[in-house]
Design a binder for these strands. Structure first.
Lengths: 182, 182
DNA sequence: ACCTCCATGTAAACTGTTACATGATTCA
DNA sequence: TGAATCATGTAACAGTTTACATGGAGGT
């Protein structure tokens, strides 16, 4: 998957591994994250496979930057992937739910403390989503009118992150109250 | 993670790899799934580490069953894990969102067709959740009153799966309408 | 005749995380 | 003085998926 995210980004413009990491952290990371180590190694593999090309840009004082550019083969690979419709749904992996599932015998006060911490963390995340949404709807749209259509699609995915957090927080609060009244 | 799921189940009763796979598929699989190959290999590792013990139950006509029982060390390992509160939140990995994020240049009709298919798949999943909830709230509760408290916790996690699917379907429908009106 | 269920496993490949490793610049 | 940012990489490990492999029993 990370392969297609990198190709998708490089379709917009040539970028370095570092740039890509920054960009991902502020966009797709909410539904697909990656460490820099994985990004650098995947870029090398894409280069070996001819899906991207790279050129070294010398720097003084810091390591040379390696700028990656998508090739025609890379564009085709990306398009072939995105045009092949997805016929399954993704499966969640939610560690907290595993913990709650097996929490019946735990000390209720500790379960409640953990719930309250989860609520706090998810509320912080929700705030980040609101800020991102504000930024996309205002700044980005005005500064890059040529990306109007793309921004629509980015906002769709952001809206999903937002709805997820809102739903999750509500569910956590309901669960908290039910446990307190048990 | 799968290690703790297996230990958590084995705390209720001794089980075989096959039993565990069946049980997981009808419970935690909605927030943490595993293939049988991973379950069998993890059980072997738990056995080697002394967290479970196993005995072979001969069968006629089919392979012997290997019944796993949690050990005192296994119980302690599980309790130590569950009592150490989680101080982060899980990160989503949603392939469909990656696809939508990069879909601005796709043929709108294909994007719409994919959206409609996703709606159908998520609605089917939602129905499964409703049935599971009905089963837990009625049959399971009456047949196993000794698990009353555990069932409460299982229902919490089920409620989350249900809310997630309801939210997701609503988001998909909104996105569909917005794309149709673009 | 074919499918599903029971029941177990191994091997290879792939994906992802954590830790190690370096070093200049800028800001508080 | 210490932290953050820029900038890249490798290595070891852990976790996960896919494919291969077998074979009887019971139902349609």
């Amino acid at each position: 998957m990370i392969k297609y995210i990198l190709l998708g980004y490089l379709k917009y413009q040539p970028m370095t591994g570092y740039d890509l990491k920054q960009s991902l952290d502020h966009s797709v990371s909410h539904f697909w994250h990656a460490h820099h180590s994985q990004i650098y190694t995947t870029l090398r593999k894409l280069d070996n496979d001819g899906l991207v090309s790279s050129e070294i840009i010398p720097q003084q004082g810091s390591p040379d930057r390696r700028l990656y550019t998508i090739t025609a083969a890379g564009q085709q690979e990306m398009e072939s992937w995105i045009n092949q419709p997805m016929t399954h749904i993704s499966l969640l992996k939610e560690e907290y739910l595993v913990r709650l599932f097996f929490s019946a015998e735990r000390n209720p006060q500790e379960v409640i403390a953990e719930l309250i911490l989860q609520i706090k963390l998810h509320e912080e995340k929700l705030q980040v989503f609101y800020q991102l949404q504000h930024h996309l709807e205002n700044n980005a749209r005005k500064e890059h009118p040529e990306f109007e259509r793309d921004i629509h699609f980015w906002l769709f995915t952001l809206k999903m992150g937002l709805s997820f957090e809102e739903m999750y927080i509500q569910w956590l609060n309901n669960t908290l109250h039910e446990i307190q009244n048990m």
